[in-house]
Design a protein around this nucleic acid. Structure first.
Lengths: 113, 113
DNA sequence: TCAAGTACTTACCTTTTTGTGTGTAGGGAG
DNA sequence: CTCCCTACACACAAAAAGGTAAGTACTTGA
């Protein structure tokens, strides 16, 4: 990483795209297949419309996901991973697995709020 | 990931430990070798004492790093990765590399603040 | 005596992120 | 004619994260 980069390191760069409370989960669900808005909302339990839309827009603006509007009424829209998004999600596999493997450890140490 | 887990998925669990503006960079520096406080501060350019200490304490409380106080005067303290921290950092490699490889793409798409 | 160096600590404030609650368009069902 | 459905939008509020500036203890060196 060179000195005039806006990022601290590659890790920092990547985390700019997937940071935030809900983005990992959104990617986690889209990894399987494209999802409609409402479907995603039900999957990502507890997220509000405002925040979900916001995260989706950011992910879309960052080229990680694609929004498809079927121009139907009632509205039908779905979201899926772009090639960039897919390659990103691939690299998250080890981290994801690490999180699963160490869930108990993390749970016991983390101060949950 | 089961239903009574406090985490959304393994990825979420892992990100609880390394989330935050500076933690990735801190880990990035500690990956190489143990570092003294002042050394770390100079490396992680721009961070304030308050925030650096805070992040270090969280990392320590979460079992990712170890603090060693040499009880000397003037004070000498250093920080290093625990085995857990080391295994975590390992899993970050692909993500880190992805970030480096795609730096230009990310830079062009991201709304930097 | 006085400044400098080390590793913090504290009070206070600003910015960023997340959440709540309500509203909208354009149909179809009853 | 009114309610319900979908995928949002908007104003506002709360919470979390980050930053600033000052101060602490103790010792060495000028």
């Amino acid at each position: 990483m060179n000195t005039n980069s806006p990022f601290l390191c590659g890790l920092d760069a990547a985390l700019r795209l997937i940071g935030g409370k809900w983005k990992p989960l959104i990617l986690y669900f889209l990894q399987k297949s494209a999802c409609r808005y409402g479907e995603l909302k039900r999957s990502v339990n507890g997220i509000s419309d405002k925040v979900l839309i916001q995260q989706l827009k950011e992910l879309e603006a960052n080229g990680v996901i694609t929004r498809t509007d079927y121009k139907e009424i009632p509205p039908r829209v779905d979201y899926s991973l772009t090639p960039l998004g897919k390659s990103l999600v691939e690299t998250l596999r080890p981290l994801c697995k690490w999180g699963e493997d160490n869930e108990e450890t993390i749970k016991s140490k983390l101060v949950l709020r």
